[in-house]
Design a protein around this nucleic acid. Structure first.
Length: 332
DNA sequence: GCACAGGTAGATT
DNA sequence: AATCTACCTGTG
């Protein structure tokens, strides 16, 4: 019988992130559909339904220090499912065989593998900014994902005053209950009850009653998502065209959507449209710029303007470094 | 039981 | 124009 997963294959990214940075890229607030498939060795004694998954592919020698940090990440985006792991300082990937041919190029795009993210970080003004320099050192190889635009908008409409784990829960419920299956049910999925689904499209969301959305833990965000879905379904291509306009126009356009303010608009442009000049300002950035840059009591819009002028055309990348550092310092 | 969480929109100064 | 507040609900 043909194995369900493809063989592990290398994915060339520059630079290769370490395990901490990879976790920050996949699970640090840019994306919300990546889950660790295996736990650190210290937790392996606890019962896990994923235990049976890792047996065939345990890397390197058993018992070595590397085992404590070895993780496999499983994620879904658009029509793709993939697993990622670090192996001898190389990023490896695999996908269900039926999707593998499509997933390779899709991963390249998703991870923005065409860019040298060390060179981009080096272009930030860290030489005159000691705190930024510190953050660059803490998460070497951090990158900004290029996620599907519509999914990014949906995730950040879910994000208002919610923690990452809760956003991931909303996303999982939306996909499971309202999204199309990613591939025919496999034996593996039957055993584990993990048949993955896409997120619902905006056209599909437009047909879902608000009360139904609320059952996906969306709370007051359900109204925003419902109204935004109605608008987007009635205006095909509007989202893509809007995101492609010059930064100020794109942001203003997105802010027309119900539930989308400056912060969410910047997140959508940065994480879903590769617009690195976008500088989302949330409570963490507000806090870090107050603490390290003396911007006490500045309003979010003022901080956003400061960020774009101080950090320049790659301000969004700087923001991600600052964000990761601040959350890490707070023990998140 | 109660504050708080990757905000936004509408009302009220 | 700047500053409150309500909005849902899981988590600690």
């Amino acid at each position: 019988m043909t194995p369900f997963w493809s063989d592990w294959q290398p994915l060339t990214v520059t630079p290769t992130p370490n395990a901490d940075t990879l976790a920050e890229i996949l699970d640090g607030g840019q994306a919300f559909r990546w889950f660790r498939s295996t736990e650190p060795a210290t937790l392996r004694s606890s019962k896990s339904r994923f235990d049976k998954l890792k047996a065939p592919s345990l890397p390197r020698g058993a018992g070595g220090p590397a085992d404590t940090t070895m993780q496999t990440w499983r994620g879904a985006w658009a029509g793709c499912v993939a697993e990622l792991r670090l192996d001898d300082d190389e990023l490896m990937w695999r996908a269900p065989r039926t999707l593998a041919a499509h997933t390779g190029p899709a991963l390249h795009e998703y991870l923005a593998a065409d860019r040298d993210w060390a060179a981009l970080a080096d272009a930030l003004p860290w030489r005159s900014d000691a705190h930024l320099a510190h953050c660059l050192t803490a998460f070497p190889g951090l990158r900004i994902l290029r996620q599907p635009l519509g999914e990014t908008l949906l995730h950040f409409l879910c994000s208002a005053t919610k923690q990452i784990v809760q956003i991931k829960q909303m996303s999982a419920l939306l996909a499971e209950r309202h999204g199309a299956p990613l591939y025919p049910l496999s034996t593996l999925d039957s055993l584990l009850s993990t048949q993955p689904h896409r997120l619902p499209t905006w056209a599909a969301l437009a047909e879902i009653p608000e009360v139904e959305l609320r059952r996906c833990l969306l709370g007051f965000r359900a109204g925003y998502i419902h109204q935004t879905a109605r608008f987007l379904a009635a205006h095909p291509g509007w989202l893509e065209a809007t995101a492609a306009r010059p930064y100020a126009e794109a942001k203003a356009g997105l802010c027309e959507l119900p539930g989308v303010g400056e912060k969410i608009a910047d997140c959508v442009l940065l994480f879903g449209a590769g617009r690195l000049e976008a500088f989302p300002v949330d409570v963490w950035i507000l806090k870090t710029l107050a603490g390290h840059y003396g911007l006490n009591n500045w309003k979010p819009a003022q901080v956003a303007h400061f960020g774009r002028t101080h950090f320049g055309p790659l301000a969004g990348l700087a923001q991600q470094y600052l964000f990761a550092c601040e959350r890490h310092a707070a023990g998140r």
